[in-house]
Nucleic acid binder design. Structure first.
Lengths: 240, 240
DNA sequence: CGAAGTTTTGACATCGTTCAAACAACGTGG
DNA sequence: CCACGTTGTTTGAACGATGTCAAAACTTCG
């Protein structure tokens, strides 16, 4: 039997393996019409798919998980956004400033031409902007615990989830490494923070990739950036 | 005689003081037509100006400098973008996720309705997205020196500048505090980094707000995130 | 001159990174 | 079914970059 681990299969979302294994990189046959596409975990949406010439592409995630990221010549990586089912993201025209997009699990996307769907394109840009601005706040002004709390809540909101004993259960399509590159931390710090959350009872997990949010309210309090009652001494970026 | 310091007046850009002092917050009389507007340093573009009802506003900076920022309930601030002459930025509809915009010097803007200029709106959104993505990389994956180098080069590119002895001269409309909130650092670190750049001859300044880039190439090298020849040991966010 | 705000500098603390190693999960090939 | 390699996660110990706190030096301006 073919083994597929929780992260890849998503547990909640079994996929058609044959379709998922279709080689990516093949240009859609009818670029003007919606086109369904399957991507395997780890695969990049290549240049061909990302932007063909001048006309900008739009991707709607039907199922699975995409990561939009940038690389430094150096090798450092920053994941700009994580997109789950329902999200539409724009493939910026390539070049040095063009971002790359990668699937974190078996993912089904709909490929559209931005010129054909200006309204959807505008909406996608708007949402990306709002999310990125929030993320900049996170990257520039939050500490490790706040970052991880925000990350978990974002993922919980984006990915369909079951309740287990009344608590939201979340399948992480991101590895600790992905989380680190998304939240501007290192793998070790992410791991330590998650384990700290587990010890204090805010979350729970047996397998690294399946997390139960046992105290979402506490996570929300941490994530919100509200002043803590217990004397918040922080000064970084503080304004009267 | 009226005294105006270098930061406020911009030295290179004398402004009509009477016009500049016009009280902000007054709604444009013809929202559908381009409308010129003057803002004094420190003034926020209020709700009235930022977004009137459902129709989104667009601002084109004619002269001066705007900062787009977010606040945490906490008081922490993150400046999302700095916009100089020529830049067009969108005023997102208010609400908890709506950003605030503030003038850092006497600033003249043109107020447009996004619905009336969809092309310009799309272009502004696109540029904002590209810049924000770059900034996320900076915030999440760069050290203090790289951040400051990038900040200086960005400002040098955005603001009209003279050459002094062949070197670009830059008027900082941002205080050290603004720089810190933009780059995800503290005032002290910004100050120390700038002084370090001065000591090593990459930049020079007598007044804190007028900076000469004496070795732009070195700044660019620092800012680029290229692996240094002298054994770069960094590992954070690194990928083969 | 004196008050207020900004920048700089120093001493010290700390959070997050670095480095190293053990551990766990998974898949492959014998 | 088991040994083994690979990849991801966890943990510990030490270090260091950057934040924090405090105060002095400047600048601006009344």
């Amino acid at each position: 039997m073919l083994h597929v681990n929780a992260r890849q299969a998503g547990l909640l979302h079994p996929v058609d393996m044959d379709a998922a294994h279709a080689t990516p990189g093949t240009a859609p046959r009818h670029p003007d019409k919606p086109f369904l596409y399957f991507i395997a975990p780890g695969d990049d949406l290549g240049e061909e798919l990302c932007a063909s010439g001048t006309n900008q592409r739009l991707y709607r995630v039907m199922d699975g998980c995409l990561a939009v990221y940038h690389l430094l010549p150096d090798g450092r990586r920053q994941i700009i956004d994580i997109a789950g089912p329902g999200r539409a993201i724009a493939g910026l025209p390539g070049g040095p400033d063009g971002h790359a997009i990668k699937a974190l699990t078996f993912t089904e996307i709909e490929v559209l031409d931005a010129a054909v769907n200006p309204a959807l394109a505008a909406e996608a840009a708007q949402e990306a902007l709002v999310r990125l601005a929030r993320h900049a706040m996170l990257l520039g002004r939050m500490n490790a615990a706040e970052k991880v709390a925000n990350g978990l809540l974002d993922l919980a909101a984006q990915f369909p989830r079951k309740l287990r004993q009344g608590h939201p259960v979340l399948t992480l399509y991101l590895t600790r490494n992905d989380l680190a590159d998304w939240l501007g931390l290192t793998v070790e710090t992410v791991s330590r923070t998650l384990n700290q959350f587990k010890r204090t009872g805010m979350i729970d997990y047996a397998h690294a990739e399946i997390v139960t949010l046992t105290r979402p309210e506490q996570l929300k309090a941490l994530a919100s950036g509200r002043p803590t009652l217990i004397r918040n001494t922080r000064r970084q970026g503080e304004h009267a």
